[in-house]
Computed example of a mutant assay.
Amino acid sequence: MSKGREGAGAGGGAAAVLLRYLREQNRPYSAQDAFGNLQREHGLGKAAVVKALEQLAQQGSIREKTYGKQKIYFADQEQLPAASDAELRALDGEIAALASKVQALQQSCRQMEAELKELNCSMTTPEMSKELEVLRKDCGSYTEKLERIKSATNHVTPEEKEKVCSEQQLYHREWRRRKRMATELLEAILEGYPKSKKQFLEEVGIETDEDQGVTLPAAP
C-alpha cells in the first residue's frame, strides 16, 4: 500500500472519504458495502471504515439505522444542499419513468406466472408419450372387440328386441295380476281358517315367490 493510501485510511482521512462518498451517492450502505466500494480506490481497511462510520454517526454527520445485527449508514438529508427546481423536475421525471418501468415489469411477471402455471398443469413429454401408448392399446382393444361384434351371426334386430321387451312386460303384468288374485283368495280363506297362514300354506302345499327367493319386478 502506498503512503498516500495509508494516509487516506487513517483517522480523519477515512471519515472525510466516507462522508463525501455517502453524500455523493445519497443511498444507504453497510460498513461491508462501503469497504468493498472504496477499498481499491482509497485503500481503506475494514476496521478503519467501521470506526470512521461510527464516529461520523456519533458526530451527527451521517445517520445510522440498525436492522437486526447489521447497521446501515446514509447521509443526513438535512445537511445536503437543497435541490433546484430543475433538479427536482428531473428527479420527478426519473421517478415517473422508473414507475412506468416497474409497472411494465410487473405486468410481464404476471404473464410469465400465468404461463408457468399453465405449463405446470400440462403433461410433460414423457407423460404424454406414456398416455398416448395407453390410448393406442385401448383403441386396438376396442377395434378388435368391434370387429368380433360385426362378424357375429347372432345379431338381434331392433324389431326382435322390441318384441322380446313387449312380451316381458306382458308376462310381468300377468304375473302381478295372478299374484294379486291369489293373495285376495288366500286372505278370504284365512278369515275362516283356524290356523296361521304359514300352517295353511304348508297343509295345502303352496310355495310363494318369497319361498323361492323371487322378487316381482316393479311396474314400469
Rank of each mutant, 00 (worst) to 15 (best):
S166I: 09
A8E: 00
E118D: 08
Q106A: 14
V102L: 08
K161P: 01
R27C: 04
I149W: 01
K3Y: 14
K117Y: 02
Q79T: 13
E162Y: 03
V214Y: 15
I95K: 07
E127C: 06
L91N: 01
L186M: 09
T215M: 12
Q199M: 12
G205P: 02
E160C: 09
D211T: 09
G213H: 08
L98G: 02
P81G: 03
E159R: 07
G43A: 04
R136T: 12
R27E: 09
Q39P: 06
V134D: 11
T143D: 12
L190T: 02
Q103T: 08
F200C: 11
E131V: 15
A15T: 03
S151K: 10
S30N: 03
A14Q: 00
A75E: 00
E113M: 07
L19N: 01
A83Y: 04
Q169L: 14
E162M: 13
F200A: 04
A52Y: 01
C165M: 15
A83H: 11
K161A: 13
G192C: 06
S166C: 10
E174I: 04
A82E: 09
R5K: 15
V50R: 03
N37D: 14
L190F: 03
Q199N: 11
Q58T: 08
C109I: 14
V134E: 13
E144G: 07
A82F: 07
A152W: 03
G4I: 06
P81C: 09
E94H: 05
S166V: 13
V49S: 00
R20G: 12
S151H: 14
Q70V: 15
Q169A: 15
N26I: 02
R27T: 13
E191M: 12
A90H: 03
H172K: 03
S151Q: 08
I62F: 01
A75V: 07
A114D: 08
L18M: 07
L170C: 11
P217G: 05
E118H: 10
T215S: 13
G7Q: 11
W175T: 01
Q32V: 10
L116F: 08
S30W: 02
Q169D: 15
A83S: 14
G45E: 01
K179I: 10
K137Q: 15
A82N: 06
E131H: 11
V49K: 00
D209A: 14
G9A: 08
A182T: 09
M1N: 12
A57M: 04
Y67P: 05
